[in-house]
Design a protein around this nucleic acid. Sequence first.
RNA 1: GUGGGCGUAGUGUAGCGGUUAACACGUCAGGUUGUGGCCCUGAAGAUCGAGGGUUCGAUCCCCUCCGCUCACCCCA
Length: 427
Amino acid sequence: MPSFRAPRGTYDILPEEQPYWVFALHKAAETSARFGYGRIDTPMFEATDLFERGVGDATDIVQKEMYTFEDHGGDSLTLRPEGTANVCRAYVEHGLHNQPQPVRMYYTGAIFRYERPQAGRFRQHTQFGVEAIGDSSPQVDVEVIELGWSFIRSLNITGTQLRINSIGDPECRPAYLDALRDYYRNHIDEVCDDDRQRLERAPLRLLDCKKTRCQAIGNAAPRSTDFLCDACEEHWMSVITLLDGLKDTYPDLEYYADHRLVRGLDYYTRTVFEIEPENAAGQSTLLGGGRYDGLIELIGGQPTSGIGFGSGLDRLVAQVKEQHGYEPPGSGPDVVIVHLGEDAGRRASALAAGLRDDGLTVIVAPAGRSMRAQMRYSNSMNAQYALIIGDREIESGEGSLRPLQGDGEQLGVPLSVEAIADAVRGS
RNA sequence: GUGGGCGUAGUGUAGCGGUUAACACGUCAGGUUGUGGCCCUGAAGAUCGAGGGUUCGAUCCCCUCCGCUCACCCCA
């Protein structure tokens, strides 16, 4: 007999976990709003071609990680493996270039990639991302980075560092890639097998190989920032300067110009960055992004610049818990109604409806249980009050309201919504 | 796709080649006449991941598969 479980690489977020997510999502929305970013929602699946073109045919994401299917009409669709392509598609489709530029947007939602799960990596994960489209100035680069940093700080996560790099643009990158290939060809015997295989296909990737030997070679490799064309160079220097200007506000904003930082999606140009815990190991990137000045054109729009980031809420929530950045309030209902007998049961339901409508949180204790059991239940719900209704109370018209948190006295309260609500609120 | 670790009640653990597989927490029910938290008692709940093999006999030993997990690749 099949005993079902959540599919590999997916997870349930049970009620007791939800407060952390609500907290993180709330901070995402709040921070975005403070920077003037408006929410956008896009479909969870898109035409497969959008990702093949946008993300890049040669990337691992497109080659082996997409959930692609054909629908009943014969169209090839793909569960979104990232968020930027969707937003850019929406930008083009709805003519958002006619709005004041840049258009600032954020999103939160599920992302799907067929990968082997491990700590901090899932087949369905949740991202919070932002995109600023239609402004190529370095101010926007730094604005987006600041937004990301501010967001992480708002979650009370500390001990993170920013890594940043510029990988140039179509004008200057070819020369850099040539230099990089030349360099590695001369060291072909010293790098690992994996690196040898991807040298021609994705030379940038060799730079962030984690093997010690390869890292030593990567350290001495040509740097993209030494090959920038004038325009990219100017942009890069401005970004660095503007970043320094954030230090008054964020004294702990440590950033490292890391010439080996590259990203796995083809669309990035110029600025790329990541935020991760200081002693990072493994799947630790909390937030990563960069500029993508060619992407909009690639998917059928006018030449338009853009920049954004994605952050893994799953990883951030894990950090929040680890660092105790948020403690959920352990609040229970205002009132649990304990009732004995059928008449009392009816009164309990009716009163609960009235009290809820009045704004209180009310649970009716499970019917048919003994008084003691219902009181125990009230206690385990962590309720503020137990409202007891039995034959006596029906007859007298006064319910017994018993405080469960402190040592307060139990008192009689008329069985009316108003009287009960007043008594509950009045303390 | 590659490699390591692990699979015993809802959760966390114990156990031993041999009668009814244990403990804690949790759940439910009780602890006299309608009142919680502590305490006490009881109950339900596990074909010991699945299949095969060794053995008189396996939860325990061996193999295969499945699943979980960690790491690589890659990424959030």
